[in-house]
């Protein structure tokens, strides 16, 4: 047991022991989700604010349900309906939320580093729910959790992350967690979206622009959505061309090991990065990822709630 952090800002700075603590804790919370009363009183009396400056429905719902199942009170704060629209700064918004005694602030923001900035002055625990193209730590944790539950380990596995790496915070969080826990990570996609420079992040990472090579020997394939909204220039000629060159089709699936698992953080574009029959197939763990996301987010809130410095008990 090794958790003393007040905030969860990224996975890059987490040790293997810290990552493992979250995964072990998440397992206990997944069991809670399988019983008839799915609620525990661990965060009773605490207030969790979902501060989503950049819109997101599924991540917010997952955090909201996680907080509710821990018996916390939850406030949802979105940019469209808030004072941020009226010109208030992020700092002032957060100060106001803290004046209402918010204990946790779950921040989704379009700017990389926004959660880090918040953590420098906030009294509340800050959880990064996705910042720009930087990190999406709870998504990385739930992906690693899903892999570990399915394959029993992370170390030594070959994980291929396929698609838009350049603009993806999901990819970055996955890369850090997987590399720290000893997986071999292959990044694959069009050269415009998968820069060679990613190999310099960690010795366990390799980049390939050739799909056949990228899929060879894979134990896990994690497909990322093409983020049209983040691309200022078009990184490939057409969606059709992307699908034909990098889409996971049944014929490409046939070249993979029969116990490979197929992951996707959602929302999926059927017929683009993944064929429908694969998304719905037995090797797909896409909906399991959603279930596990809830358990992982409960674990993160639970761990951050404890662990205040100088009060480490047995």
């Amino acid at each position: 047991m090794s958790w003393t952090r007040r905030h969860l800002l990224d996975l890059q700075s987490l040790s293997a022991a810290e990552l493992t603590t979250v995964l072990d804790t998440a397992r206990a919370f997944r069991a809670i989700g399988e019983r008839s009363i799915k609620k525990v009183p661990a965060l009773r009396g605490k207030t969790v604010v979902n501060l989503f400056v950049e819109p997101s429905t599924r991540t917010r719902i997952s955090f909201e349900l996680a907080a509710l199942r821990l018996s916390a009170d939850v406030i949802n704060f979105t940019a469209e309906s808030s004072s941020l629209k009226k010109g208030e700064s992020l700092k002032d918004t957060v100060r106001n939320l803290e004046a209402l005694n918010a204990d946790f602030i779950i921040l989704r923001h379009g700017a990389s580093g926004a959660p880090q900035f918040l953590s420098q002055f906030a009294h509340a625990h800050v959880v990064n729910a996705g910042d720009g193209a930087h990190e999406h730590p709870t998504q990385g944790l739930l992906d690693v959790f899903t892999i570990r539950e399915r394959r029993g380990r992370i170390e030594g596995l070959n994980v291929t992350i396929l698609g838009d790496i350049l603009y993806s915070r999901v990819a970055r969080s996955n890369i850090w967690a997987l590399a720290t826990l000893g997986a071999n990570v292959t990044l694959c996609g069009p050269s415009t979206l998968v820069p060679k420079v990613f190999e310099s992040l960690h010795p366990r990472i390799r980049v390939t622009w050739d799909l056949e090579e990228g899929l060879r020997g894979a134990d896990v394939v994690n497909l990322l959505r093409i983020q049209h909204e983040r691309q200022r220039i078009s990184a490939f000629p057409s969606v059709g061309e992307y699908a034909s060159l990098f889409g996971l089709t049944p014929s490409r699936m046939a070249t993979l090991s029969p116990d490979v698992i197929i992951m996707h953080p959602g929302p999926i574009n059927r017929g683009v990065e993944i064929a429908s029959e694969i998304a719905d197939g037995v090797q797909s763990v896409i909906l399991e990822q959603v279930t596990n996301g809830l358990a992982v987010r409960m674990a993160v809130l639970f761990l951050l709630n404890g662990g205040r410095q100088g009060e480490l008990a047995a």
Binding site: V40, A42, L43, N305, G306, L312
Partner: peptide
Amino acid sequence: MYRDDLDRRAAPSLMPT
């Protein structure tokens, strides 16, 4: 998960129920 001192100590390890 049912302890009454969870915010006064390091988060405990969870064991199976």
